[in-house]
């Protein structure tokens, strides 16, 4: 268990390291996203043992929320913005979220699923 956690940490750190290198030389994506794509590739091409990594990664994903709390607390500096534009902010988030939900839902259901059913 501890061994697997150590193994996973090393693999993730290694991928992040390569990601930092790529981000510095190629630019474009943040280092962490290069790292994520490399992590996916090494898993896909079975360069690392995915069964040893599964438990640690699901633990990380389950608990990572706490890492974003400090960034969120930064809203404390935006008292004036919230006071002036809070309603507009929430409305824009609400409208764009429902547009996106409807667009993806309707397009997939009517153009992809129904079309497949009718050709069968």
């Amino acid at each position: 268990m501890v061994k697997n956690a150590f193994y996973s940490t090393c693999v993730i750190a290694g991928c992040l390291g390569i990601g930092k290198f790529l981000a510095a030389y190629l630019g474009g994506l943040p280092a962490s996203l290069y790292g994520m794509l490399i992590f996916t590739s090494v898993l896909h091409f079975q360069l690392v043992n995915s069964s040893k990594i599964a438990t640690t990664v699901s633990w990380i994903i389950q608990h990572m929320g706490v890492c974003f709390v400090p960034a969120g607390v930064g809203i404390i500096n935006h008292y004036q913005l919230i006071k002036d534009h809070g309603f507009a902010l929430v409305t824009i988030i609400f409208i764009s979220t429902f547009l996106l939900l409807s667009f993806v839902g309707i397009t997939y259901q009517h153009l992809v699923l129904n079309k497949n059913n009718s050709t069968r």
Binding site: C15, A31, S32, G35, L43, I61, V66, V69
Partner: peptide, 25 residues
Amino acid sequence: QYFQSTQLLNNLLEPAVVALGFPLY
């Protein structure tokens, strides 16, 4: 000051993104 003190948590953001490569895989 709060953000500087909790920098450690914020730094874990990067490995957390890398970990998301697993569900993608």
